[in-house]
Computed example of a mutant assay.
Amino acid sequence: ATAVQVCTQGIVEGPKAFGRIAKETNNWLDAHGYSSLDEIRGITIKHMENIKENNYMTVPPKVELDKCVGCGICKIVCGYKAIEIEKKKAVIDIERCFGCGVCTSKCPTKALSIPR
C-alpha cells in the first residue's frame, strides 16, 4: 500500500490500524516467501501491460439531505477537496471525488453513503 492508502486506513480505523497493518504485512510476506516490501513493489506492473483501460469505477457518495446537519466533518476528512458545505448541507463535487468512502465512515449522522 502507498502512504496515502495507509493514512486513509488510519483515519478510518484510528491509530491501531498502523500496528495491525505492519503485523499483517509481515505475516503475508513470510507466508509467501518474501523478506521485504521491496521484493514485491511494482510486481503487478508487468501483468498490466495488456490492460488498455482503467479497471475501476469511481462512485461518489450520495447525501441524504434529511440526515445531513452540515457539521463539516466530511469536508475536513476529504483528501480530494470534493466536499463543500452549502446552506448547512454537504455537497459533493463529482468531478473531484474519487469515491474512497472516508467521508461516509466519519459522518456522525450516516448522511453519506456510496451507492452499490
Rank of each mutant, 00 (worst) to 15 (best):
E13M: 10
C78A: 07
E53R: 04
A3L: 13
E13Y: 15
P108E: 12
G33E: 09
V12T: 13
G70Q: 07
P15Q: 06
G99F: 01
E39Q: 13
T25E: 12
T104Q: 02
N27G: 02
T2R: 08
I85N: 02
C78Y: 00
Q9M: 12
G70A: 02
G33Q: 13
C7G: 11
Q5E: 15
I94T: 15
K89V: 14
C107V: 03
I11R: 09
W28T: 15
Q9I: 04
N27M: 11
D93V: 05
E95G: 08
K46Q: 11
M48D: 09
K106Q: 13
P108M: 08
C100W: 02
G14E: 07
E86G: 02
Y56G: 06
M48G: 01
C68P: 02
K106A: 10
N55G: 12
I92T: 01
C97H: 03
I85A: 06
R41S: 14
I114H: 06
H47N: 12
V69F: 06
C74A: 08
G14V: 05
G42R: 08
Y56N: 03
T58F: 12
I73C: 00
V59M: 04
T109V: 09
T25N: 13
L65K: 14
M48E: 11
P60R: 07
C107D: 07
G14Y: 04
I83T: 10
V12H: 07
D93Q: 13
V91L: 04
K106L: 13
D66Y: 07
C97D: 02
E64L: 10
E49S: 05
T104P: 00
T109Y: 15
R116N: 12
Y80G: 07
T25Q: 12
G101V: 03
Y56C: 07
G10C: 10
Y56K: 03
E64D: 12
I51T: 08
Y34S: 06
V91Y: 02
S113C: 07
D30W: 04
I85T: 01
G42P: 00
E39P: 05
E13G: 06
A111D: 06
E84M: 05
D38E: 14
I51C: 02
G10A: 11
V4D: 14
T109N: 14
Y34E: 09
Q5G: 13
M48A: 15
G33A: 14
K67H: 03
K110Y: 11
A31M: 09
N27S: 11
K75Y: 01
G79T: 05
M57L: 13
C71F: 01
D66N: 11
D66S: 14
F18K: 10
S113K: 13
I21T: 07
C100M: 00
G101W: 09
R116E: 14
D38Y: 03
F98L: 14
S105P: 03
N26Y: 09
I83W: 04
V91W: 01
A17D: 08
V6R: 15
K23H: 06
V77R: 00
A31I: 05
C71K: 11
Q5L: 08
K89P: 10
V77N: 02
G99N: 01
C78F: 06
N55A: 12
V59G: 00
R116T: 01
K23R: 09
V102A: 04
C71L: 09
V77M: 00
G42N: 04
T44R: 11
E95I: 01
K46W: 01
V102N: 07
S35D: 13
C68M: 08
E86M: 10
